[in-house]
Computed example of a mutant assay.
Amino acid sequence: MKFLIPFLTALLLSLTAQAAEHGTPDEAVALINKTAAYLIDEGPEKTFFEVSNPKGRFIYRDIYVVIYDLQGKIMAHGMTPRLVGLNAMDYRDDDDKQFVRDIIERAGKGQHGPVDFKWVHPQTQRLHAKSAYFRQVGLYVITAGIYK
């Protein structure tokens, strides 16, 4: 018992620290709004370039921005820039959910999320539940998700 209490305390502190590393819904929405303002002020070309910089201003903790056009083409990707130019409309998660299609359709109706799906966390490389928040700005849908 004497060793169990320190072990459980250390485990609890570790889990709390890991949870604190994940972004929050409010932080994801703030990052989307920051990106939207930049898109409006600076235009698409400069915004896509900035968002696709994995060490840039549109990354916060484990939250990154992805911008799609209305047909599902990835215009910018904050974590994996090599995906830019691919059409993700029919991407499916581990449960066969077409989450990009859902995001784009809901954004077109003026909704902002969340859309829940499962995706690999970029830092742990493990499958996690994720909630994507989004906002349509002109011809583009700006997304940012939080891992749970």
Rank of each mutant, 00 (worst) to 15 (best):
N87D: 13
L4A: 12
D90T: 14
K97V: 07
P122K: 10
P54S: 09
L8P: 01
T143P: 03
D102L: 15
K2W: 07
A17T: 10
L127E: 12
P114R: 11
K118I: 04
T124L: 09
G78R: 04
R106I: 06
K34E: 11
I32A: 13
E27W: 08
F99S: 03
L13V: 09
Q136H: 07
M1A: 06
H22V: 06
A30Y: 11
R92F: 05
F3I: 01
E45V: 08
G110D: 09
I5Y: 11
L70Y: 07
L86C: 05
T35K: 06
V66W: 14
Y133D: 04
D93M: 08
F7Y: 00
K73P: 03
K148F: 09
T47Q: 02
I67Q: 01
L83Q: 10
Q136C: 07
A19E: 08
R57K: 12
Y147E: 01
I59E: 08
I142P: 00
F7W: 09
I32V: 15
R92L: 11
I5V: 14
V115M: 05
Y147C: 03
K109R: 15
T35M: 14
Y140Q: 04
H77T: 03
P114V: 12
G23R: 02
P6V: 02
R101Y: 05
D41M: 12
R126K: 15
H121Y: 12
L11F: 10
N87E: 08
D96M: 10
G145R: 02
G110S: 11
D116Y: 11
A144C: 14
I104G: 01
S131P: 06
E50D: 14
K34Y: 07
A10Q: 03
A20Q: 14
M79D: 14
R135K: 14
G110C: 11
D116T: 13
K118W: 15
F99I: 03
I32D: 03
S14C: 10
L8W: 09
L13Q: 00
H128W: 15
G78D: 04
I40A: 14
K148S: 10
F49M: 12
G138C: 08
G23F: 05
D95M: 11
S52C: 06
V84P: 03
L31G: 01
I146F: 04
W119T: 07
E50G: 01
R61E: 10
A107P: 02
V100R: 06
Y68A: 00
K46W: 05
H77V: 09
A132I: 12
T24G: 08
E105C: 02
H121W: 09
N87M: 05
K34R: 15
L31W: 02
Y64W: 13
V84R: 11
G43I: 10
F134S: 03
Y60F: 12
K130E: 04
Q136P: 01
